[in-house]
Design a protein around this nucleic acid. Sequence first.
DNA 1: TTAATATTGTAACATATTGAGACAATATGT
DNA 2: ACATATTGTCTCAATATGTTACAATATTAA
Lengths: 243, 243
Amino acid sequence: MSNNHNVTSVKGEEYLKGIAIDIVIFGFNENQLKVLLLEYKSTGLLGLPAGYILKNENLNDAARRVVSERTSLKDIFIEQFYVFGDTSRHDTKPIKKILSAEGASTQPDHWLLDRFISVGYFALVDFKKVIPQPDQISNNCQWYDLSDLPNIMLDHNLIIKKALETLQTNLDSKLIGFNLLAETFTMAELQSVYETILNKKLQRTAFQRKMLSLAILERVAKRMTGGAHKAPYLYRFIKNETL
Amino acid sequence: MSNNHNVTSVKGEEYLKGIAIDIVIFGFNENQLKVLLLEYKSTGLLGLPAGYILKNENLNDAARRVVSERTSLKDIFIEQFYVFGDTSRHDTKPIKKILSAEGASTQPDHWLLDRFISVGYFALVDFKKVIPQPDQISNNCQWYDLSDLPNIMLDHNLIIKKALETLQTNLDSKLIGFNLLAETFTMAELQSVYETILNKKLQRTAFQRKMLSLAILERVAKRMTGGAHKAPYLYRFIKNETL
DNA sequence: TTAATATTGTAACATATTGAGACAATATGT
DNA sequence: ACATATTGTCTCAATATGTTACAATATTAA
């Protein structure tokens, strides 16, 4: 699981050249969407979790590997959403800064200083299960509020924006919101996920009726919440039995 | 516009290595979806129009360039739909066959024999405006019925399948079907496009009511069709004025 | 010239879906 | 025991969609 090769070495021979994977890892906590970011050592630079593709590795497996390495989770929901391939992305300044901080070579033929095409993925994870892990060249890996993001290096703010747009578009049709919650959840929690992603209030009763009509939820038990009110049911997402 | 460099040369130095673009060019004629395919010289192999990215070229521009070269059109609707990056795609047999037929080198370090990641695009074009153009290493470029496709090399049948699925999914939400028709069209023609893509019959009156309610169609004039019946209106697609 | 025919545009009605409010049920705190 | 907040479900209104009907009309046939 751990790298035994230094990504900052001049050649990067284990990896396909010119192709990177950038991953927007979404979490959900306290009615807020969160994004996992790395802080590169001694540079103040922030970046999305990223990685490269091993020469005999499937693209999707590489994306899963990167998510696993940063979150300590496995079996994660990921989805490709866009490939970023404009020439204007090719900005060597932050890369040089990161390499310098590592004491690595910044000679022009360093593989990381070439132009890269980035395949954008997003991942939806259970916030509470994640144990953030910095990578080799960062000293910090932590959650940031999506609604209050700092400046992130290169075009990563744009990548997050596009990821969110895709998530919003696909939320209803692909029924993927459940991946942000624990195994069991209340209808109110699910509604909060939807409201936060779509950035609008939803009708409580209509939401409940619709979700139940989809026949994708299994009622598990009542939960005693400790609140001064009726206890809600807990639900579990029923995976599509045709798969 | 024309290549002054031979893609079959060993180095392919003008292009980014390891990244290809495969394009599913959809046309619509006689109530059928069509796909443009190339036949490689003296090999019997069929393939999707494909290309590589020039070192200082935007990814999307490269895709547009390839579509333009094969169709003789410009200003074409294209959309990324998936990146194909499984290791199982790496099958050098058909590539060697094509290179051999060209009299080109098939030594193992030929750049085209490396593993490639393919960015899949689909394009929607006006069938009647297209003048198919073979590329440098093919001797034929022609339309095939989507419903009766031959075997195509590598994973290109799969790529077409995925392109169609994306087209079906996005047809209503992104209002892109118009790109398959001429500048003006009848409601019946538009309905036929929808029915063919979605592979199901639609209710005539409900379809008309819905399309008109979207406020994206401008009525142009009546057309005398030569048929023994009432003449239909012609419509034009109104591009979103907020863009 | 007139009638027959096929298709078009729109209206009308039925049915289905969604929006919005009402209300009983119920854990907990007072 | 009562007050309070939230939940689950019901009802009715508003909207959207499915379906049928029918007048309008460009051509062909009589």
